[in-house]
Design a protein around this nucleic acid. Structure first.
Lengths: 317, 317
DNA sequence: AATTAAATGCTCGTTATGAGCATAATGAGG
DNA sequence: CCTCATTATGCTCATAACGAGCATTTAATT
């Protein structure tokens, strides 16, 4: 079935990492080159597996063991097959979670809040004004500029599904689709990198720091995966210190999800899932009543089978 | 950051496809070589993107347009970096859904029920006797054979999470983890391919047809993805004819999930999600009261933002 | 001692979900 | 023609999950 590969079909593998840490309620991502790139490394002969390749060079760079690693996506679309004899690059991206951040001295690599790249994704203090005041109007104009009426309707619907009305129906998981929509609408600087800058009318881009190549897209993919995953797997704990208060845990989840949560219900959820156990100690770092300290119950990684199902199953016959 | 790639780091990309169709309530997968392989093709210079590469050779093979395509996973672990100068192979796998099956004449490629490969995954007629009578006892023996007590406990827990007790707590999404567990326990023939056959005591493998290389694992990955996805995205319809009854739709979902569902509740779910609309016609192919025919409302792909969240969000401030 | 900031406990209404009863509309068999 | 088997479809009920918010407790601060 598979014919022997031609020389010209050889590619080079590049590994990209979305490496996430959490400090002072900010979700941080490791960047290079003044924030313009995600760290990446080659997949070399000495690596037995892809994941060990990622671990190897990330740990060398950050000087810290990488707790959790998960494959994100494989892209080969960035550069067309080169006719000049240079090999095509296939990039495989990974999401990594780590507890400690790099010593602050170095300027490059640097940890940055991911909300610098996606400011409209931070709804922790309520609906982002950026969405209602800047993004929705611009997207609206883009929808109106569509060729025919059918396309207009489709655009409006996509905008509505992904961005809501600026106040309600915000779904934090849709970060990737939102970025892609902005990209299509020409509202991020990356769009203009791609095409002939002269012919595309230069629109004022939406606030948010761009990255080179498709790295901001990869970052969005990583955030989307993480935001989805915290809902059914206890991955937050990879980012937490060994002992923490429930409020600290809540702030961590809020930082990742970009949304505020209901304190008492958050505790109820954590509690009834048996995710944590008290260490016995408590802390009074903040002003009010001292909070009990908890630790993650490692066992639950084994215990918990996701039972969640949205299908109307019937009892075993 | 990325040093210029050495010649030896060049790899060849192989694309694998888990191509699914549905006929007479059986979930079918396209196989080659008497069922021992998944179809695969090279990623060649002429393909602009990975996905177009997959589409190109799958459509050529099946003579049918491929509705839905989704990337599954990228493996590079199968073969260690070759010292003999042959290039390493990285395989990128895709899940594809198609409505029509290949003309039945050809013997190769061939559509086969995926339950031939994973017979223990079919719980449509109630708990699989294979699990309770064959698999659990063998896994139990494997757990007992562990080195120390801690490892025994861990193995027992993993078995329990993934296989339940043979009657309750079956989670159809865990198909990949179950296969991996059986692999580790040496209960599938593939295990013995890998290692030195002489030294590993040959245990009677669990029923279920093996595949070459890691193709059964890739198949499990595809099924797992599909089983998870039907719960929050209307992908079943990619496998349905243009018009269908609600019972046919239910049987399709049951075929994929490998579990029976509650008829009335299934209808309620479909109904309140507005996934379908009546065509006006009805059918009396079966005996009882004629059933109304429905069609999928294409619009919902746009309409539906997944709202599902398991976090205790609070109302926007 | 009063005030303030958290932590923590508990209740309430709404919705989603699992189960099952009841009725309707056909074809098959007598 | 009548009865039965079979499938479709409508509806109710109990329970669990979830969003909201009130009330109480416990410390630091003023």
């Amino acid at each position: 079935m598979t014919p022997p590969p031609a020389i010209s079909d050889a590619v080079t593998i590049e590994l990209n990492a979305v490496l996430v840490a959490l400090t002072e309620n900010q979700p941080l991502v490791l960047t290079l080159d003044d924030g313009a790139l995600l760290p990446s490394g080659p997949f070399a002969t000495e690596h037995p597996t892809l994941q060990s390749g990622v671990r190897a060079w990330v740990e060398r760079q950050t000087q810290h063991p990488l707790g959790y690693v998960e494959q994100l996506y494989t892209f080969a679309d960035r550069n067309r097959p080169a006719s000049d004899g240079r090999r095509r690059v296939v990039s495989i991206s990974y999401l990594g979670l780590t507890r400690e951040r790099l010593s602050a001295g170095a300027r490059d690599p640097e940890w940055r809040s991911w909300y610098r790249y996606f400011p409209w994704e931070d709804w922790r203090a309520g609906p982002s004004p950026l969405v209602a005041q800047t993004i929705l109007p611009q997207l609206s104009a883009w929808a109106d500029a569509a060729g025919d009426v059918a396309q207009q309707r489709e655009r409006r619907q996509r905008i509505d599904v992904n961005f809501g009305d600026g106040a309600e129906n915000w779904n934090e998981d849709l970060i990737l689709q939102r970025y892609e929509l902005l990209y299509e609408a020409g509202l991020v600087p990356e769009t203009q990198q791609e095409r002939h800058r002269a012919t595309v009318p230069t629109i004022e881009p939406v606030p948010g720091m761009p990255m080179r190549h498709d790295h901001r897209r990869i970052l969005a993919t990583g955030i989307a995966r993480l935001r989805a995953k915290i809902k059914y797997r206890p991955v937050v704990f990879e980012l937490m210190p060994p002992a923490f208060t429930l409020l600290q845990l809540q702030r961590a989840v809020e930082a990742l999800a970009g949304r505020p949560m209901h304190k008492q219900n958050f505790r109820r959820l954590i509690d009834q899932q048996g995710l944590v156990e008290p260490t016995g100690a408590s802390t009074s770092e903040t002003r009010g009543r001292p909070a009990k300290l908890f630790r993650f119950r490692r066992e639950v990684v084994l215990e918990r089978a996701v039972q969640g199902t949205k299908l109307p199953l019937s009892r075993p016959i």
